[in-house]
C-alpha cells in the first residue's frame, strides 16, 4: 500500500519536473528578452527584430531538416561547410554569366549531392555519422576554397534583390525560412513520416520490425539536409552579396546543434518538437544580437554560444533522466 502511494507521489513530482524541463527554455527566453530590453533602447524595436529574423533565416532553413535528422538518430556536422560550398558554387556560376535561377539550382543540387554521399556512407554502409560528417566538414570547406580562392562578388542585381525585398514588411528570406519550418513541423506532427522519424531514432530495431523502412528514413533525411543546406548557401549569397569561401556558413553546425538541443531534441534521437527548435534558434539569435548591441566583444559572444551548447547538453541530460529507468524498468531487451 505504502509502496503504491510512493509510486503516485514520485509520479506527480516527475510530472512537475518534466513540465519545468519542457518550459525551461521559454522561461530563459523571456528572461533574456527582459534583460536586454532593460539594458538597451534599440533591442526591443521592430527594426531590430527584423534584423534578427533576417540573420536567422539561413539557420532556420538548415535547422529544420537537421533537427529531424537528429530525431532519427543521425547527425550532420558538415551543414556549415555544405552551405559554404553551395554559396561558392552558385556564386561562381553567376560570375561565369549563368542566369541566377540556374546558378541557384546548381547550388541546391551541390548540397543534394553532399547529402547523397552522406546517406550512402552512413545509412547504407553503416559508418559513423560523426566521423564521416566531421571529415566532410573539413573536406567541403577545402573544396570551396579551391573553387574560389578569392571572395566572389558582383552578382546580378535581380539576385541581390532577393536579399533585400520585403513583402508586407517581412523580408522574403524570412518568408522562405518560415515556409521551411512550417513544412518541417507539418511533416513531424501531421504525417506518418514524422512518426517513422521518431521511431527510427527511438528504437530502430523495433521500428524495423513494425514495418518502418528505417534505411529510407535515414537516407531521405540526409538528402533533405544536404539540399536545404544548399538552399541556405544560395540565400546567404543573396543576402551578403559576396561569398568568401573560408567564412560563408562557418560554424553553422554549432548554431543548429545548440538550437536543436536547447529545443529539447535528444542527441540520441527519438524525441523532439519543431516548436522547441524554433525557440532555440530565436534564443541563440537574440543572445548574439543583444550582446552585440551591448558592445560585448565578439570573443565573449563566441564563448557564450559555446557555454549555451554545454548547458543545452546538461538540460538534455536532466530531461532524459526523467524518462525510462526511473521506475526500475525491467523490460530492457538488451539486458537479456
Amino acid at each position: 500500500m505504502s509502496e503504491l502511494l510512493m509510486g503516485r507521489v514520485s509520479l506527480q513530482t516527475r510530472g512537475l519536473r518534466r513540465m519545468l524541463a519542457a518550459n525551461a527554455l521559454v522561461v530563459a527566453f523571456v528572461a533574456l528578452v527582459v534583460f536586454f530590453a532593460l539594458n538597451s533602447d534599440v533591442f526591443l524595436t521592430v527594426d531590430n527584430f527584423r534584423t534578427v529574423l533576417l540573420q536567422s533565416a539561413v539557420t532556420l532553413v538548415v535547422v529544420t531538416p537537421f533537427a529531424l535528422l537528429l530525431m532519427s538518430g543521425y547527425v550532420d556536422l558538415a551543414v556549415g561547410s555544405t552551405v559554404g560550398l553551395s554559396a561558392v558554387i552558385s556564386g561562381w556560376c553567376m560570375t561565369q554569366g549563368l542566369p541566377w535561377t540556374l546558378a541557384a539550382l546548381i547550388g541546391v543540387l551541390a548540397g543534394l549531392a553532399v547529402g547523397c554521399v552522406h546517406g550512402w556512407l552512413i545509412v547504407k554502409r553503416g559508418l559513423s555519422a560523426i566521423i564521416v560528417t566531421l571529415g566532410s566538414l573539413a573536406a567541403l570547406r577545402g573544396l570551396a576554397e579551391i573553387v574560389a580562392p578569392d571572395p566572389l562578388y558582383g552578382f546580378p542585381t535581380s539576385f541581390l534583390d532577393i536579399g533585400t525585398t520585403t513583402v508586407l514588411g517581412i523580408p522574403v528570406l524570412v518568408l522562405v525560412a518560415l515556409v521551411v519550418v512550417g513544412v518541417g513541423a507539418a511533416i513531424l506532427n501531421w504525417t506518418a513520416i514524422g512518426k517513422h522519424i521518431l521511431a527510427t531514432g527511438g528504437n530502430p530495431e523495433a521500428a524495423s520490425v513494425s514495418g518502418v523502412n528505417v534505411t529510407r528514413v535515414g537516407v531521405a533525411l540526409f538528402l533533405v539536409t544536404g539540399a536545404a543546406s544548399g538552399l541556405a548557401g544560395v540565400m546567404l549569397a543573396a543576402r551578403v552579396g559576396s561569398t568568401p569561401a573560408a567564412t560563408t556558413g562557418d560554424g553553422l553546425e554549432m548554431a543548429v546543434l545548440t538550437a536543436a538541443l536547447l529545443g529539447g531534441v535528444a542527441f540520441t534521437g527519438g524525441r523532439g518538437t519543431m516548436r522547441g527548435v524554433l525557440l532555440g534558434v530565436l534564443f541563440l539569435a537574440l543572445l548574439q544580437n543583444g550582446l552585440t548591441i551591448l558592445n560585448v566583444q565578439p570573443q565573449w559572444s563566441l564563448a557564450a554560444q559555446g557555454l549555451v551548447l554545454v548547458l543545452a547538453a546538461v538540460a538534455e541530460k536532466l530531461a532524459g533522466s526523467q524518462h525510462g529507468r526511473v521506475r526500475g524498468d525491467r523490460g530492457d531487451p538488451k539486458a537479456g
Partner: peptide, 30 residues
C-alpha cells in the same frame, strides 16, 4: 509477430505505437 522482447517505442504514445508502420492517413495526413 508479437515479440517477447517488446518492439515498442518508449518515447511515443500508446496509440502511435499501435499504429506504427501502418498509420491511418488521408491524403498523407495522419
Amino acid at each position: 509477430v508479437i515479440y517477447q522482447h517488446f518492439s515498442v517505442q518508449d518515447d511515443m504514445s500508446v496509440a502511435d505505437n499501435i499504429f506504427l508502420g501502418s498509420e491511418l492517413t488521408a491524403r498523407g495526413r495522419l
